[in-house]
Design a protein around this nucleic acid. Sequence first.
DNA 1: AAAAAACGTTGATGTAAGTCAACGTTTTTT
DNA 2: AAAAAACGTTGACTTACATCAACGTTTTTT
Lengths: 194, 194
Amino acid sequence: MIGNLIEYINSKIDSKLTESDIDLLSETFHLKRIRKHQYFIQSGDVCKIAGFIVKGALKKYTIDNLGKENILELYIENWWAGDKESFMIGTPTPYYIDAYEDTDLLVITKEDFNNKLSKLSCLTELNNALTERQSFQLMKRLYSSQTLTAEQRLEQLQNTHPEFFQRFPQHIIASYLGMTKETLSRIRSNALKK
Amino acid sequence: MIGNLIEYINSKIDSKLTESDIDLLSETFHLKRIRKHQYFIQSGDVCKIAGFIVKGALKKYTIDNLGKENILELYIENWWAGDKESFMIGTPTPYYIDAYEDTDLLVITKEDFNNKLSKLSCLTELNNALTERQSFQLMKRLYSSQTLTAEQRLEQLQNTHPEFFQRFPQHIIASYLGMTKETLSRIRSNALKK
DNA sequence: AAAAAACGTTGATGTAAGTCAACGTTTTTT
DNA sequence: AAAAAACGTTGACTTACATCAACGTTTTTT
């Protein structure tokens, strides 16, 4: 289990993790299993853990006053799940995250993150790099959301994250793209006719 | 001029800048004046400088194939202007940034940022904190863009950034909010009738 | 194996917001 | 002071996409 995390970190940093780094990681991260449809976090929670996905798939969303899910992020293997703002600052999260497949996570508490992992400078750097990357991608998604048509947004997602289409059903993809499942279905059937 | 930057940094960090820190900053940042309508960066440029706004107002936007501006960010005093992705990674920017008012910036080159400022750990930390904050805000804007009506988005901006309404004309605010100037105008006149 | 739930599609209809165009007012330029 | 540009508003019309509803298929649960 922890092997996936080690491999992931090594692939993202310039140096390599030492034996003692790996020991530290092994005793700090814990396995958490979530079955399909179970929550990882719920709106109102303070997000006290962050999780690295070893296996499985999750979705992050809000629920509006009509009970409709608005999906904001999709997560699969080798991604981090959680609400970073709530985790870092300690504010209640407005989001839900639940498992779309049975999922294995390696989780870490805020305390361990602050106390134990701050010693691993490569991890702090990795965290910073990921935050930065996340912010670049959000900028692009915001731009797409404001300026592209539903059809263009679909095409873009097919280019940037083709794997999502293998893992999530169409109505979830549609919500992630900010459109209804009916619209997505019609776009696809029109595309076929061409 | 540099006083504004010092004051800004001191207000954002836990400690205070030392005399030698201030000397380093003074010799690293340079004043750049941009007159109204001039570009700070243009699409295709590699963004080699980042700028702290001492006085003035700028807008960041793309231009679509019909020549229409899509405004992504608005900047005023005490903000940083630039395309961070292009600045950090060295890729050509897809954005334009130009001055909406005559603007004074304190700018720093990528080389100086890497070589000189890496010595100031408080600045690296500030940079990381700002990136993180930026990413949280982009998440909220993405959510708003995908789920709120034009009217709700306007109301939200009036709460979060009332200052924009003093500094930018309505058609710029409208574009920033992802709607047309006509829609914004109609929303406001409807709101008045209530 | 049967029942229930989840999923995807299609048609009819509704609507929020965009487009186009004209016009008055304010600001900037010369 | 005159001309030009920028700005904001309003009306008529269009459109992309949402909503509502029904139905067939596939997957999951029991």
